[in-house]
Design a protein around this nucleic acid. Structure first.
Lengths: 186, 186
DNA sequence: GCTGAAAGGCTAATGGCATTAGCCAGATGC
DNA sequence: GCATCTGGCTAATGCCATTAGCCTTTCAGC
């Protein structure tokens, strides 16, 4: 390579810092170039365009979340695994709210692999509940919905009242757990 | 007024059509002006700027959702009310996925009143569970998280597998219901 | 060490969009 | 009838993404 400096990964790194500090809406090529000390068009040597950069950022975030989720579930099972997963997920979103909301939910080929790993971790966390086939899929969907919904709303500051959010989240975990234990009646 | 034609409400209406047809990302003043048959700057006579238009759109969507939620809960109670609320919510998001995702979750003074009504409806739907004070707040938060999470993911097409989504959603409702019934253990 | 190619930076130019300023016509209230 | 206000318009500015084409530095192979 000529010059030291940039690389696709480095560009994504700078992009993540912008997202963290100023929100996903502030992610522009112009801003990244500014931080990189480089003219905007130079970025096109590393990234196809802004849309791709967003996808790359999203992929990185999803990877980090997968890391967190994986660590939470490792060596645990049953309710404990589920609660650890939910706590880890929430904690990640809480620590990096902008980053979390920069994660694209619509399926994309570029992040399909990571997304599958993430789903796999959720499935693993549910293993102890003995759900078979479709039942496990439904359970994962509900788990995702609960975790994602809470994370999004908390990250957006949508929970305004003074009540302790840890307690709210504990209730959410309780809902998931108790719902799975009694997931007979369809 | 001079001329017939536009008004803030009409502008929001056109904006909603754009959102529905092309997604929230396609909502630009330029696009609205195009549909209105008017030059872009003319819109500033009706709306302060794009940011405000987004808030107005969001408010309208929240209002519609409140309508739906209210109708679902009317004349029902207990599990039935809760399930009807969840079904109505999901159904709205399903029928208008782009519109749903144009709804701003971060609290805003302009939509505070509608948001409060919506929270009120959720509280009403939970009335039969006899939750007092803080417990009710936690329950509403969890209900919101579950409904919003499912709606967002479904609207984004994040649920890829073939399994029936109605069934997944029924499980989600079951989780909420069973979690609330047994909401003793914190 | 020399050379040729490629990598990675740059400037210039284009086009879309938001926003502001300032103008103008027609409708309205009196 | 007339003053005024409402709601439209054009012109201008500035930001941003993107493309084209140039130029230098680096490095692989000799």
């Amino acid at each position: 390579m000529a010059r030291a400096a940039l690389s696709p990964d480095a560009v994504v790194g700078l992009a993540l810092r912008i997202v963290d500090e100023e929100g996903p809406g502030a992610l522009t090529l112009s801003a990244v170039a500014g931080r990189a000390g480089v003219a905007t068009p130079s970025l096109y040597k590393h990234v196809r365009n802004l849309a791709e950069l967003r996808v790359l950022v999203s992929g990185r975030v999803m990877g980090e979340l997968t890391e967190v989720a994986s660590e939470a579930v490792l060596g645990r099972s049953g309710d404990e695994a589920l609660r650890a997963l939910m706590d880890g997920w929430r904690s990640y979103a809480y620590r990096h709210p902008h980053r979390y909301s920069a994660m694209i939910q619509a399926p994309r080929p570029e992040t399909a692999e990571t997304a599958d790993r993430l789903i796999g971790i959720m499935l693993a966390a549910l293993r102890a509940y003995g759900l078979e086939g479709s039942a496990a899929i439904h359970a994962v969907r509900c788990l995702r919905a609960a975790m994602h919904g809470f994370a999004v709303l908390e990250a957006a500051g949508a929970f305004q009242l003074a009540e302790d959010l840890d307690e709210s989240h504990a209730l959410l975990a309780h809902m998931v757990v108790s719902g799975l234990r009694t997931a007979r009646e369809h």
